[in-house]
Design a protein around this nucleic acid. Structure first.
Lengths: 287, 287
DNA sequence: TGCCTTCGTGCAAATTATTTTCTTTGATCG
DNA sequence: CGATCAAAGAAAATAATTTGCACGAAGGCA
């Protein structure tokens, strides 16, 4: 549990003085994290004991414990209390995007459902053929990434972002195959259709999507990804990065599961690349 | 600059006692970050003043400054001093991948070259036509992501991962266009050829690649991405995530640059999606 | 209205943590 | 074999933090 979360919970119940301290935390974080209790108290126009009590209230043992906690979660928590830091300077935009991406990873990690990941890995590793589906730019990237990762381990896999093809492929799939579909919104009706068809044909399906969504409902196994979307329409969603990480987790685990096969295939791919290129050995897995 | 980096630099020059303190930092980080100077000194079998001196040596003002710095970078720095946490448990693999991804983002941020980013953005925003090139799975993803992002802002863009097509497109391009190429290794010979051809035709080129590489040398503008690659061949490189973030930074900045156009186009795309889908307004930018 | 309770707060004292200063130790070198 | 210097600890000084206590304001209840 991080302080910023606690702070938000307690927010309403804080007294006037405590609110002044909270404001400083939120507005001048840099100051707060470096200040001594006396400086912080001074800036908030309260006495040091009030600061101590404030820290206790937030679940810390002492002021220094508080500072450590603060510094630790700062990195993560900073942004999701504050509104956008509206600047269009290169450096600020860069910082903002990177922070958001890290945040997305943090939130992903926090909400990962290991059980469903294991089920999914099991299915994928055992499948005779893997179909990866996704559309709309973001999910189609995920689908082709799935192909890009999994073929390296010697698995049979194809990806498609074309709805009609997806339906046809679903119709052609067998119960020993698996169908993986990604949908950021969880409301890709065509994917639901493909999943439904698969269900009729007893082909297992795995959804990478929001839980409690139509896509999730239609799938055999759902690996839930529930992240808040940013609201700046110019900004590409950092959710993509979380999906990509999830995909890395899945494919690493699959790789371990099918290891002997994976080693051989990877070696062959590597050899191919090395002779094809300039003989430099570092070029392992494609450009 | 973070402490772990400094610690690595100073490592050799530390005295015996100081080394004991360093060991505790690395091995029992949790303890170190919560301990008082006395506890830490006790555990390292040194006197408190020695700890103070150690902190100063690492560039901190005081012990408490040190603790804050420590707590701040902890999250990030933790892993890159330690060897791999070799476990194949789902939870550990997940944690490892997420940490690596966050690390990659951290390192990217630290090494970003803002000047070249600005130059690149300038060019892209002003271009009449944008060609995005990349091959080999990873870079081809980057190329198609570029297309996926930029078309939304009303820019004319096409992506290709096909070497022959890339050459032909380069031949067809004009000096008012721009050619963006991605190469993780920096040693994609075909991309170099396309860039060289473009140079002859006075078509500006932007490389997203390692600095001091053939691809970088062939480009008009290089946006360098210099990250250490992991060495676990099963693990998809977290570098992809850094590239994706860089791409987000570039495209956000481009969006700001071409704003009026972007707003209109985005609105049209959104409208299209909303009527096409189930009327839910939240589905902004593709699935 | 007036009293009582409760809560929030600051003051001052006590405690604890940290830093400084001074001193010792042990190693290196002429 | 001293002279010198760096490293490290002891003790003192300082600074930071916490605790105990008391005061005052707000709100409830007779």
């Amino acid at each position: 549990m991080d302080i910023f979360a606690t702070l938000q919970e307690e927010k309403g119940r804080l007294s006037q003085s405590e609110n002044r301290i909270a404001d400083i935390l939120l507005n001048d974080f840099e100051f707060a994290v470096n200040a001594s209790i006396i400086e912080l108290a001074g800036k908030a126009d309260v006495s040091p004991p009030t600061v101590t009590r404030f820290c206790r209230r937030l679940g810390c043992d002492s002021f220094s414990d508080f500072k450590v906690q603060l510094a630790r979660t700062a990195y993560i928590g900073m942004r999701y209390l504050k509104p956008e830091p509206k600047s269009r300077e290169t450096g600020d935009v860069a910082q903002d995007i990177i922070t958001k991406a890290q945040n997305a990873l943090f939130l992903l990690h926090r909400s990962l459902d290991l059980a469903s990941i294991e089920q999914a890995v099991e299915r994928i590793a055992a499948a005779e053929m893997i179909y990866a589906f996704g559309s709309g730019g973001n999910s189609s990237m995920i689908a082709s990434e799935l192909q890009n990762r999994l073929f390296r381990y010697g698995l049979r896999v194809t990806a498609s972002s074309d709805h009609s093809m997806q339906l046809m492929m679903a119709a052609a799939a067998r119960p020993t195959d698996v169908l993986i579909g990604s949908s950021f919104s969880g409301r890709n009706a065509e994917l639901v259709r493909a999943f439904t068809l698969a269900r009729e044909l007893k082909v297992p399906t795995i959804a990478l999507t929001q839980s409690n969504s139509p896509v999730a409902a239609a799938a055999t196994i759902t690996v839930p990804v529930d992240l808040p979307e940013g609201n700046n329409i110019y900004r590409p969603t950092s959710t993509r990065i979380a999906y990509l990480a999830l995909l890395d987790i899945l494919s690493s685990l699959v790789a371990y599961r099918v290891q002997p096969q994976a080693t051989v295939t990877l070696r062959r791919i590597k050899q191919q690349l090395v002779t094809h290129r300039d003989g430099d050995d570092r070029q392992l897995l494609g450009d």
